[in-house]
Design a protein around this nucleic acid. Structure first.
Lengths: 194, 194
DNA sequence: GTCTATATCAAGATAGAC
DNA sequence: GTCTATCTTGATATAGAC
């Protein structure tokens, strides 16, 4: 078979294409190898095993999501818009990467009852980024002692948007719904401050 | 090995215990058989294959959820309470059955990129029940032309609650958050009617 | 209908050459 | 680092007796 110098990147690309759309367990390593045009031993040389491959594909994905979200925040002009930017960012992000069926991180978490330490850490870093950044963005919008509660609510709404994708809703509509609900939630939080 | 006359029920119980907590693919048939104390051939005689077993376990589960939800609605005393009853019902339901890690239906959907017709139908019937019943309950609460939009929002919130379980939140807190957000969403919908 | 024993097969992972 | 070829395992499903 042909030799591919960028085997590593090709494997990560194929993993995003296949494992994050069909599910990890439903995607045999063979299929990833065929799609990447790479030999088995190459995969194991780079990633150790299948879980290592999945883990590093998630890590690369998280970096991209981080960038997309951050730039959406940078473009927004009010504290409220910055807090809500996570929703349009999600819409934009999903057009820029091989679309997971819903959420690559939650999807992998759902089928990994006993993740190894590395994978566990990577999965946690997704929720970590989500809550930490929302917290920063919430502080200018609501009173400090309401920020944590508001963040928890927004994380739930954001997670709900992802879940709607799994229920078959298209991205635009799910994001629009999420934005609307998040708006109502913020109103209510602002109201409770007065 | 010992003979079990209620092999069918035992298999469904074991499936709920194992497959809906660990994930379907992560739960070998052998493990279900061992847990049920039943022989392989018995399983295949009753259910045809693994997917058949999963499907029927989901169907039984949906019937129970239906009952729990309906009785929570019956206990509520105002239209608004009846509409919101889905949240406390979820909390009660999860204490009454072997707890899936988050949601048995969404969990199976997430790892089944190509479900067979029976499984597909069963998975759809979950979302179907959710939206249809919420629609009935929403009509007395908001103007008719806002009911569909409100239902979509509540389905998202409900789905978000389930997703938070997957993110590791405990049931009580997730349900409480969902109830709070749903309240805000309904306020906003009522407001837009005025 | 249920059991024991086993067939079949696919999947993850490795050996060894280049 | 990458390839070809193969090993090993573990999982789904079936055969045949009771």
């Amino acid at each position: 078979m042909e030799v591919h110098p960028r085997a590593r990147e090709r494997l990560l690309d194929a993993t995003e294409d296949l494992a994050f759309t069909q599910g990890v367990a439903a995607t045999p390593v063979d299929e990833i190898l065929r799609s990447a045009g790479v030999a088995p031993a190459t995969l194991y040389a780079h990633f150790g095993n299948k879980e290592g491959l999945i883990t590093q594909a998630l890590e690369r994905r998280l970096m991209r999501w981080d960038e997309v979200w951050q730039s959406a925040i940078d473009e927004a002009s009010t504290p409220r818009e910055r807090l809500l930017a996570v929703f349009p960012a999600l819409g934009r992000y999903r057009m820029s990467v091989p679309a997971a069926r819903w959420c690559a991180f939650l999807g992998v978490a759902a089928e990994s009852p006993h993740p190894g330490p590395q994978l566990q850490k990577t999965l946690a870093s997704d929720t970590q980024l989500l809550t930490a950044r929302l917290k920063e963005l919430a502080v200018p919008v609501v009173a400090a002692d309401h920020a944590d509660a508001l963040v928890a609510q927004l994380v739930l709404v954001y997670t709900g948007v992802l879940g709607m994708l799994l229920r078959g809703m298209d991205t635009e509509r799910a994001v629009g719904l999420g934005l609307h609900i998040a708006g109502a939630v913020i109103e209510a939080a602002e109201g409770s401050r007065r």
